[in-house]
Simulated assay, not measured.
Amino acid sequence: MHGNENGLHPDTGVTSTIFVERSLNEIRFWSRIMKEHSLFLRLGFRAEDTQLIHEANQFFRLFERLEQTAHAFTNQSDPDQIRSFNSEVQQAATSIFAFKRKVLGLIITCQLPGANNFPLLVDHISREANYFRKRLIELNQGKLKPLPDAIIKENVFFLRIMADHAKFIGHLLDPSERKLIDIAQNFSNDFDQLLYQARDLEGMVPYSQTVPLLDQFLDQNRVSVTSLRDFKKTARELIEQCKIKSIIHPLLADHVFREADRFLEIIDMFDAHLTSHKTNPRFVED
């Protein structure tokens, strides 16, 4: 979850407790994600890509340490310590973002022929690193989007992530798994449509920022994300039990499941905020 008050307007202030809780929540979740990205990149490099493998291993160790440090803090930790820790993690997220973009450039310019990292996958994980680093900057600066902006922007970001996941699953399954590939393709199409709708809503801001429209927007997205999350859970279990043919690492199956679960938590949190605004359907600002 994105903290308990993700859409809070900066003018209302953020307490030290909320700041600490949000920061630790973000870092505990995303540091683990960054650590796993390092592993997935390494697995996709060729044996001769020793320097890239070395860099990926360094990032794995770095984010493993940061994840452990985040769990050593508590919600009662000193806000100044957390602010300093946020800066340290933000620098690490910026570094891995740059590494991922470098790898993407090498792949697209055909300098890593035979490697197994899709360009879209590397772009995907670099977007997540950029999201993480920007989130930490916002937290330290106390800049939080008004609720209507946060709802639309977060959904645009995560809907694209979900659409990508469906595409990756479809391409990493063995071609003989025809039925599962068909299901993954249907999810890809569904989330592409939801993403287009979200971007249309974003283009109509501020007029689209009414409680009825945002409420319907969240409800529609929740239905599809829940279905995809459940599909990912089933796929994870089948992969762990060696019941389907694929080149999907079991950790990758769990990784994409956790990201869908987080998106659902964010939708539920936004919905709870919207409920308190339903007496004011016009609601352009929080």
Rank of each mutant, 00 (worst) to 15 (best):
T109S: 12
I181Y: 05
L194I: 06
I18W: 08
V211G: 04
A235T: 04
E55I: 10
F257S: 01
A93I: 01
A150E: 13
I82R: 06
S77P: 11
I152W: 12
Q51I: 03
F231K: 03
T74F: 15
E128P: 09
S208V: 08
I181K: 02
A56F: 09
F263K: 00
P146A: 02
H165L: 03
R65G: 04
K102R: 14
H171Y: 12
R61A: 15
L104Y: 15
D192Y: 15
L139C: 11
I96G: 09
I169F: 12
A93Q: 04
L173S: 00
G44A: 06
I82A: 02
S38W: 04
A163S: 15
H277R: 13
A93M: 03
E5Q: 15
I248E: 00
E64C: 04
R83S: 11
L43P: 04
D49Y: 14
Q90P: 03
L194M: 03
R258M: 00
N189I: 11
V225F: 10
E237H: 09
D219G: 05
S23Q: 03
I244Q: 05
H124Y: 12
M269Q: 14
L180W: 06
A253W: 02
K245Q: 06
T15R: 05
I247K: 02
N75K: 04
Q51G: 02
R101V: 14
H124Q: 05
E64A: 07
R222H: 14
L120C: 11
K35S: 05
F231E: 00
S31W: 07
I108H: 13
N130A: 11
F158C: 06
Q216V: 05
L238N: 09
S208K: 05
F59N: 03
S77D: 14
